[in-house]
Design a protein around this nucleic acid. Structure first.
Length: 582
RNA sequence: CGGGGCGUGGCGCAGUCUGGUUAGCGCGCCUGCUUUGGGAGCAGGAAGUCGGAGGUUCGAAUCCUCUCGCCCCGACCA
């Protein structure tokens, strides 16, 4: 491809509004153009990378035995009502009504396709002989995000690979899940990403497994906790906090005192009002667990984790109590609850870290008042201790004696055991060999293709631009003739271009009549892995200059046989990134 | 949905508080000459309903009201 015949609008300056590296560089390198918040055009260069990621995903899915199909982005709203997800998605689901003749048809733009595919499978699969099967598609998804942001990382429209497995049993699902998990590992390895599979919250559908594939990056929206020692990794929602030594602190116990804290109902207000640290506060949250009020205690600077609380309370449904309930139970308005002397006697669950606290501050169960010098055992008792909070950086690892490190990350993939939620709602059943009917056991597996690109840039760039892994680079080789008006230079460049193209190498020839500096700057910016400079200096000695984008110094090669050498270098790199394939 | 910031040629910005010539600057673009290995120099040129609507005023990019859009923080995220 010739530079002058495609569209690569590079920019010297960063457009206003772009802040994180992937967004800035994708705009500056001419990969994308913004159409509105959360919607971007993929320009020729950006599209090429997107397609490369897409193809890697497709190849590995096929290799794992999944079968590609393509479903429509539009689907009838009734399908979403049948599973209750029209409501569950709320405004995130893009709904609209169109007119056909004299009737109105209500539709949704697919944010994911469990409903559509389960409906399809329900129509065409009825026997255990047809199972298991895994179907997938690569298609644009639509979600009305509350706040699109970070360039291509969170958009209202994005390219997703979504796969769905259908099995006759939970055991068989487990097999499929393992296969997909392994395929995901190969995909992200081939893409050259430093990724981490982490345990994720599997949601209300059974206690089954779910994993997210995360790329640690400073600007990631997710937080994961990772133990470098034993490899334990989980997202923040899921991560367990290892048990600490429970020796209570060895300090003299203060007297229990009631202090006035007018208007101070939040942790922040109370700690600044009383001049103490949030760590010295015990926050008391009133929940209703299956309709029954319970109190949950956590250290002031910790965040309660509702999933953990629900499991500890052995409840189906858990939600924060409403203000009336709180007032009834504690005898005080919201913000002044405490474990000492609640109005009604209720069960008290406490995070394990409460055991190590002494002389704490809690709400006094009275308006505008808190208690200081509160101590476990003397002033209040706890019915049950458990891990009830989100893990944070530095917490003990639940699997070994080491510590968890908190890291931000970009979620690029998610594998999930669904069970029979959708097959039951949409009557996708099969007959077994004894003529018994069962709902099909499902799994679903998603990859954000755009996020692969963003994550690659986010984790591989320098102050001058993108540093593409060969597998995702829009072009593998960039030819830079320094003087396009010189016949000899252009003859060599064009020949190289043609030879490399013929050898199946993706090559871009910068045939612009621009100064060397301009071309070098753009070369670094768009980050093509191998740069070949054809300049008068080298040409005099019958030589060309080559440089990998990630290296500092170029080296000279002979002009004769240059095409073969360059092609071989690229093939080697391709092989390196494919090495994960067994 | 709460908080904050910003809309001025293609891109980045100044001017707005304190209303007053033909609305500036850098980059980019076009023409010419010179230059030519890390974003060239000189000369000339094209390009803007100052996000939009309404209002105040002799006069509005500037003041007032409404509105649209974009970005960031938080909340939310099957």
């Amino acid at each position: 491809m010739l530079w002058t015949q495609t569209l690569i609008p590079t920019m010297k300056e960063t457009p206003e509004g772009a802040e994180i590296p992937s967004h800035v560089l994708m705009l500056r390198a001419g990969l994308i153009g913004q159409v509105m918040a959360g919607a971007y055009t993929y320009l020729p260069l950006g599209l090429r990378s997107l397609r490369k990621a897409e193809n890697i995903v497709r190849e590995e899915m096929n290799a794992a035995g999944a079968v590609e199909l393509l479903m429509p982005a539009i689907s009838p709203i009734s399908l979403w009502e049948q599973t209750g997800r029209a409501e569950a998605f709320g405004d995130v689901l893009i709904k609209f009504t169109i007119r056909r003749q004299n009737r109105k048809v209500r539709m949704a733009l697919g944010p994911t396709h469990e409903e559509v595919i389960t409906d399809l499978v329900a129509r065409h699969i009825s026997s255990y002989r047809q199972l298991p099967i895994t179907l997938y598609q690569i298609q644009t998804k639509f979600r009305n995000e509350e706040r699109p942001r970070f360039g291509v990382l969170r958009t209202s429209e994005f390219l997703m690979k979504d796969a769905y497995s259908f099995d006759t049993s939970v055991e068989s699902l487990g097999e499929n899940y393992k296969k997909m998990y392994a395929a995901y590992c190969r995909i992200f390895e081939r893409c050259g990403l430093e990724y981490l599979p982490v345990e994720a919250e599997s949601g209300p559908i059974g206690g089954d497994v779910s994993h997210e594939f995360m790329v640690p990056a400073e600007n990631g929206e997710d937080t994961l906790l990772h133990c470098a020692e034993c490899g334990y990794a989980a997202n923040q929602e899921r991560a367990e906090v290892g048990a600490r030594d429970v020796a209570p602190p060895d300090v003299p116990l203060e007297e229990l005192k009631k202090v006035d804290t007018p208007g101070a109902s939040t942790i922040e207000q109370v700690s600044s009002f009383l001049g103490c640290k949030p760590q010295n506060l015990i926050k008391t949250l009133i929940y209703t667990a299956d309709g029954k009020p319970i109190a949950v205690l956590a250290r002031g600077d910790h965040e309660a984790n509702e999933g953990k609380i629900r499991r500890a309370a052995v409840a189906e449904k858990l939600e924060l109590a409403d203000p009336e309930m709180i007032e009834r139970v504690t005898g005080a308005p919201v913000g002044f609850a405490g474990p000492v002397g609640t109005k009604e006697k209720i069960a008290i669950l406490a995070d394990r870290d409460i055991r190590q606290m002494a002389n704490s501050v809690t709400g006094a169960n009275a308006a505008d008042a808190h208690l200081t010098g509160v101590n476990l055992g003397r002033d209040f008792e706890v019915d049950q201790f458990a891990d009830l909070r989100n893990a944070v950086d530095g917490d003990p690892c639940p699997r070994c004696n080491s510590q968890l490190a908190g890291r931000h990350a970009i979620e690029v993939g998610h594998v999930f055991k669904l069970g029979t939620k959708y097959s039951e709602a949409l009557s996708a059943r099969f007959l077994d060999d004894r003529e018994q009917q069962h709902p099909i056991v499902m799994g679903c597996y998603g990859i954000g293709i755009n996020r692969i690109i963003a994550a690659a840039i986010e984790t591989s760039h320098d102050e001058n631009g993108i540093i593409w892994p060969v597998a995702l680079a829009p072009y593998e080789v960039l030819l830079v003739p320094l003087k396009v008006t010189d016949e000899q230079t252009m003859k060599v460049a064009t020949q190289l271009h043609d030879d490399l193209s013929a050898a199946g190498i993706d090559v871009l020839l910068d045939d612009r009549d621009a100064r060397a500096g301009v071309k070098f700057k753009d070369a670094d910016l768009i980050g093509i892995p191998l740069r070949v400079v054809i300049g008068p200096r080298g040409l005099k000695q019958g030589q060309l200059e080559i440089k990998w984008r990630w290296e500092k110094e170029p080296r000279m090669i002979d002009r004769d046989g240059a095409a073969e050498l360059v092609a071989e270098l690229i093939r080697c790199k391709r092989k390196e990134s494919d090495n994960s394939r067994v």
